[in-house]
Design a protein around this nucleic acid. Structure first.
Lengths: 195, 195
DNA sequence: CTTTGCAGTGAACATCTGTTCAGTTATCAA
DNA sequence: TTGATAACTGAACAGATGTTCACTGCAAAG
């Protein structure tokens, strides 16, 4: 029978993911070698192939996992109700979730071009599902006369870009707390879309 | 005497820059080899070294040139006057300029991490000068009571992220004209900052 | 204790990397 | 025609790349 306890794979596997995530976020997918990732984990390069088919799949799994977790967390938000309340919930959620995962977010935007065509399509589909959530809120608010939007789809892109931009400048040790941050961005969004 | 006509360097030099720009934007700095760039230009790899000291300098020159041109163009905008008018001018300028140069914009955000520390500092300084322009407008409008901003610096980041985000989704053959686009974004910004 | 099989090693593979440089070509000035 | 020189070639360099695989060590199952 296969061993259960004493098996390292359940420890090493996540460590490979973590090392790959950190190194790719710092240097870029193409700039990081399998040997560097292995060294970070403390094994030889060959051992990585117990945990991934190849380097491309390693990247794809990082992005897919991130997007799936993001969608799972998003699903906790209310899908119906007052559009303004839902928009606020979405904005605060987006900032809170993304600011805690700068490496994942960075990679998810930067390394799309290093995905194979099939893998790219898969990730784009997940991203599209995420954006649809905000799109639905904006359209509902539009119908209810609470928002004044000429092009809800464009507003979706604009709001997500604005919120995600937090990651480019926010530092944990800065003057602003995460609550301050969410308040500031929510004020901007609220006024931008308000009827 | 040195030759003047018949000298190819004034032709090949820009072609090297253009090829490097296109390929790096598409695949990433680390993923593109000097041989690929040379092939795109139609020369051997060694010939590139007539136009750049090394690969790092080639990247740096692309980013530096982009930022310098951006700042030159920005300098054409009025530096004084009604803050609302200046903010509108800035927003329309930013979108118009960036949307015409997707490769440069992409590289300028994506490849910062592949710059040497000194080169990184130099580019960041240029970027900071650009952001200061918007920052000044927002602070002037704040003082004049035309804008209501809790943190002008954060608003600067938010607005720039939102406007630059256009590049991630806009397509030349889409339904929206560039004027429509600028109108939509300007409406969002105006309402977001309005007192 | 013996057997099983997972986890990891380390060498090997073919190929690619940035960069250098002696040598070739082509064009111009004189 | 001659001499100069900018532009480019093509080979060479030392080392890095992703991936494979026969192998070893070792913990657990029987």
């Amino acid at each position: 029978m296969a061993r259960k306890t004493g098996s390292h794979s359940e420890i090493t596997g996540p460590r490979v993911q973590a090392a790959a995530l950190r190194l790719i976020a710092q240097h870029g997918f193409a700039a990081v070698s399998m040997r560097q990732i292995a060294a970070e984990v403390g094994v030889q390069a060959g051992a990585l192939y117990n945990y991934t088919n190849d380097k491309q799949t390693l990247l794809f799994d990082l992005l897919r996992t991130h997007m799936e977790h993001l969608l799972e967390a998003l699903a906790q938000l209310p899908g119906t109700g007052d559009p303004i309340t839902r928009l606020e919930a979405f904005c605060r959620f987006h900032i809170a979730y993304h600011i805690e995962r700068p490496d994942q977010v960075f990679i998810s935007y930067m390394e799309l071009r290093n995905l194979s065509p099939e893998n790219f399509t898969a990730i784009e589909a997940l991203r599209s599902r995420y954006e649809s959530h905000l799109d639905a809120i904006l359209k509902d608010g539009q119908s209810a006369g609470q928002f004044a939007l000429d092009e809800p789809r464009v507003t979706t892109f604009a709001v997500i870009a604005m919120l995600t931009g937090v990651n480019t400048w926010y530092r944990e040790d800065g003057a602003l707390s995460k609550t301050d941050l969410a308040d500031l961005y929510w004020t901007l969004v609220r006024r931008a879309v308000a009827a």
